[in-house]
Simulated assay, not measured.
Amino acid sequence: MDSTERLLRELSETHGVPGHETEIRAVVRRHLQDSGRFDHDRIGSLVCRTGQAGPRVMIAAHMDEIGFMVKLITEEGCLRFLPLGGWWDQVLLGQRVVIKTHQGDLPGVIGAKPPHVLPQEERKKVIELKDMYIDVGFTSKAQAEEAGVRPGDPVVPDAHFQVTINNKVYMGKAFDDRVGLALLIDAVKHFSSASHPNILYGVGTVMEEVGLRGAKTSASLVDPDAAIILEADICGDVPGIKPEESNVKLGGGPSLVLLEARMIPNVKFRDLVMDVARLLDIPLQFSAGLGGSTDGGQIHLHGCGVPTIVLGVPTRHIHSHVGIMHRDDYDRTLQLLIALIERLDETVVQGFSQ
């Protein structure tokens, strides 16, 4: 296991749903403790700055993962819950979760009324989240409360990191966006001891999955001249997805977002990415869609506007308990990211807006 695999494993297995990023923030800070000067906004986003002069370049990855929150405890001791982030109800039933209480973590499983007691016509319907519950094994509300469960407690998917095909395919939770966080950490650590023609701000944002909230506040703190958003991108190489819906493939190289629901990237910055990828012989894939947005949706509107692009690592099954990514995609994305930052001097960055 090399340092990159160890980093991705640790980030994937660390907990941190929207509004509860304390654990993952501590891990990011520990990895960057010798790489720059820290700052933070007032809702929990973490900033690590390195460099002395030049344009202010912000690389951003969100720390939060999709999860849940306890809404109430039933008289039988089961937990009704709310989603934190976008979940597809079909992927929830029977999945293990961790309830993070003030007295410690508790394992649970997502359940619903069993099909044996449902009328035949009801068995064919998709169970909605509102009809599900989390079962820890309690037999009463009092027992759940005694164990430390309270309304508002965060709930995290319970999934472990695994290495599979040729030691290059990784399976685990929260690659959206722990893969972006890993890229951020590796890039900031690289430039803490390498020259670069800019002031680099590595920003771990909070609450992206519930409305790009940390992107707005951290952009106010950094006041960037240019921004690179680091994300997991949706793979289209699985059954049922048409090429026009997504043509991004696992192992096919980093992706460049051409369009998202809340942002069109800066055209000159986008073209620079294409040129650098071609120069370095890095295969570049293209992603476009209106089904979601990234922190770029907020950051590019900061102040008078911020030239912004989004780089993605192809990932299958995002917004579920377990995703799949390829190590070659990660390595090529990091190579491209470092090469881009090396070129972002005053002239280049000013040219984005001219």
Rank of each mutant, 00 (worst) to 15 (best):
V98Y: 09
E21M: 06
N167T: 09
D2K: 08
P283F: 03
H317C: 15
P224S: 08
D223W: 11
L311M: 09
G86E: 08
I229R: 00
I165R: 15
A194T: 13
I324P: 01
I309R: 03
G296H: 01
P55L: 01
I24A: 04
D331T: 13
R80S: 08
I99N: 00
E5F: 12
A187L: 10
L284G: 06
Y170K: 08
D186H: 14
T333I: 05
D41P: 06
L259S: 12
A261I: 09
I24S: 00
V206E: 06
L72G: 12
A226W: 01
R332W: 11
H40L: 11
I127L: 13
S3P: 10
E260R: 04
I229Q: 07
M171P: 07
G251F: 02
P157G: 04
R270V: 10
H116E: 11
T50E: 07
D105F: 11
G211Q: 04
H160L: 12
G292P: 03
G312Y: 00
G252K: 00
A159W: 00
M207V: 09
P107E: 11
A194G: 07
A147N: 08
Q103K: 15
H321M: 15
L284Y: 03
E75A: 15
D331S: 09
V70Y: 01
R178G: 08
L284E: 04
R213D: 05
V149F: 03
D237P: 09
K173F: 04
S293G: 11
D105R: 15
I309Q: 05
Q95A: 14
I264F: 10
G204M: 07
Q354G: 15
M171L: 15
M263P: 00
H326S: 10
G148E: 08
Q95N: 15
E145G: 09
D135P: 04
R213N: 04
V188K: 00
R213L: 09
D135C: 01
P151C: 08
D41M: 03
T4W: 00
P114F: 02
Q354L: 15
E244V: 12
D89V: 06
P115A: 13
Q298H: 13
K130A: 14
P119Y: 14
R9Y: 09
H317A: 12
V222R: 02
F269I: 06
A112R: 03
G111H: 02
S218D: 06
E209W: 05
T347W: 11
F352A: 01
A194M: 10
S192T: 11
C235I: 08
G202P: 01
E208H: 08
G94W: 07
V257L: 09
P154N: 04
L79M: 09
Q143C: 11
A226T: 04
A215Y: 01
N198L: 02
L118M: 14
F191M: 06
H321V: 14
M58G: 02
K173V: 02
